[in-house]
Design a protein around this nucleic acid. Structure first.
Lengths: 208, 208
DNA sequence: GGAAATTAATCAATCGTTTGATTAATTTTG
DNA sequence: CAAAATTAATCAAACGATTGATTAATTTCC
């Protein structure tokens, strides 16, 4: 059959990412990956060397795409508050459009058994964190922001988004609700952005 | 020998909780649990029926202790803001004093493979969430709080704490820093409480 | 034809669980 | 009280199944 010219290598990556997200790294077997991707088991080691090789490849792929998005914002000639609002919008969109992967990343961050992966995720996150840090610190220095605990504010911004992704039932009490449903996701996304922008505006710029 | 009268059953629970927190449920073998607890492997099934039985027992134990702490607060004759501040203080303390378990709980929440456990955690969290919901809603109704997206504010409070626990490096940039170190933990706890209390005060009560 | 891709079959290791036997403690019985 | 019966706790060994990985043979493609 000549009709199906699919890239087995990519099929393995896609299947593995899906399974790792759903059932975790240890909870996913190479046989499951093979079956889900339609590839032979040996193909996994043929292309990636090992199960962990697949995992590392997935993480590297994603993290690479992570880095090159938000940097431009900080160079715009706009106020610190506008920068922060843009970052929030971009951050919420990116995470909410990749909820499964974001869950997996946080799961990996809470484990101590793959230190190299932990450090890799930590470093990737640190870039975003430092960007936000510079924006808020800049705002404080030019007097447009109140003096606040910058790192805690960052934890609040990132934590809020993560919390919505991992425990969406906290936000939407209605039971028939699905973050995978595009319509539901759009609603949550807009609410999250509106909330975080409002919160930061009030907290950072209210004179007191 | 009468000196060492250790409860093997409890020893298994303790060892299992430690290992589950460190390396995850799938990442922990029954042989590890047996070795760590000093019990024979068969004891695990003898007392708990299965590996999952151990896990369920741990979660039930913890969640039971979870529920019965914060309820009293809402009955105090104090303002909504004071109630909220008390809840924040209690919540931060409880989570920061059980960081390993809290990590494990969130990890479990991000997996789809043990639905009963997911529901159990969700329900346990919902109790706390509803308490905070009532406090904030009450404050809005009596005019002392601004009209806000209540569920999003809750996500912010809980998300901030979780974020600090799972990714403490975001808060403390210094590398030689450990949440297990009581002195460091105390500092972080106080910063987290101060930040969240300040944040909620400004956001909920600033006239605008 | 030969390199790359793919396959079925197989490997040792480890998984969670079960077994049958043994010891220690408790209860029952005469 | 003491012998007998019962129960609970513990153990080493083994179970079948599954794990990630590898082999050697075959097919595909340029």
């Amino acid at each position: 059959m000549k009709t199906e010219k699919v890239d087995k290598k990519q099929a393995i990556l896609d299947a593995a990412e899906k399974l790792f997200c759903e059932t975790g790294y240890e909870g996913t077997s190479t046989r499951q990956i093979a079956k889900e991707s339609g590839a032979n088991m040996a193909m996994i080691n043929y292309y990636f060397g090992s199960k962990e090789g697949v995992f590392v490849e997935i993480m590297n792929e994603r993290i690479a795409g992570f880095a090159s998005q938000l940097k431009i914002i900080n160079e715009d000639k706009i106020s610190a508050l506008e920068k922060l609002h843009k970052v929030i919008e971009g951050y919420v969109n990116r995470i909410m459009n990749n909820t499964a992967f974001h869950k997996m990343m946080h799961r990996e961050l809470s484990l101590t058994q793959r230190p190299e992966m932990y450090d890799k995720i930590k470093d990737a996150m640190s870039q975003n964190m430092q960007l936000i840090d510079r924006i808020i610190t800049g705002g404080i220095e030019d007097g447009s922001f109140n003096k606040v605990d910058v790192r805690m504010v960052i934890a609040t911004i990132m934590g809020t988004i993560t919390n919505i992704v991992i425990a969406p039932h906290k936000v939407m009490s209605c039971s028939n609700f699905d973050l995978n449903n595009p319509k539901d996701k759009k609603i949550i996304k807009e609410r999250a952005i509106a909330h975080l922008q409002d919160l930061t505006t009030v907290y950072l710029t209210t004179k007191r």
